[in-house]
Amino acid sequence: MTTELDENKETHQEEFPNAKLYNNVHKIDLQEFYTSGHRTCQGCESALVMRDFIKASGPRTVVTGATGCMYVANTSYMTTPWVVPWMHTQLGGGGSSAIGMAAGLRALMRKGKIPKEKINVINFSGDLGGGDMGIGGISNALQTDYDLLVIMYDNESAANTDIQATNLTPYGAQTTFSPTGTKERIMHKRWKKNVAAMLAIGHPNCNYVATACATFPPMDYMNKVKKALSIGGPTFIHTLDPCPKGWDFHPRYSGDLGHLAVETGIFPLYEIVRGEVRYTYDASKKKRIPVREYLEKQGRFSHFVDEDYELVQLKVDEMWEDWEIPGVAPIKGFLKVK
């Protein structure tokens, strides 16, 4: 991990002249705009997702948080950990809240009611709010011409409501909606919804879609936020957030689980810039670690037997070897036919 710190050659700074990208952890801004004193779990990866997006965006930002862990845990009335202006939005309101703020600010600036300046507009929604209930609103936001960013922080469950399955919960995971039992070992048989690629493919207005993991590779996520905010128009980032609580692992290891998710290839890291796919960790070229090493470190898979691990491995390999666009789009077109 430490070796990768000062490299990160692949920021592609030249493509984003308006973004001051990080190429060295020692140059990361030291101030926090989401600060200590929030009711998140020990080792919470999503808290880092909050901390890093606002660090990358800076104080001239307005933020909405959809109902979910990062709403309920972060702001306990009448206290707040936010330095920047922040507001709650409804579970499915993420995309719409971003439109509302962006439209309001643009109108007021255009009419000279407030000074003209670039104010970043960011909404964060969880996998339940953003990937399921709110996906229509996010889709609508990506159809507008407003400069806004929607971040879907994905801890693969409704971790704020007792850890129920969502459409982004991976195959086989135990949740309170998919417990293992004497008759059914596996209750959750759905495969993870492919949200980022779906949104990238369906929205011609959207210049930037990325997947990310808060701490790996270092600075990658923060740079993706900077790129999204500088490229113009509506943008979307999907982060995978290892959740000690819902996934049932010791909070010390949240970072390690993130690395493993990327290195096993089960969570592809990429950015789609104006329609061009670029891997920020190419699990098709680099040697993938067996996915079992990722799964068996989480209590939610403690009921898995060999065949379960093999099935998941099969799906991961398929994702990188059979998909038309490896790790991104499962469509099998003429390229594969040839």
Binding site: Q31, S36, V83, P85
Partner: peptide
């Protein structure tokens, strides 16, 4: 909101005063 304050050194960052 938490005040926009930061300086290098111990306790140099403003934090949520009402929930440690």
């Amino acid at each position: 909101a938490v005040p926009n304050q930061f300086k290098i050194g111990p306790r140099g960052l403003a934090r949520n005063p009402d929930y440690k």
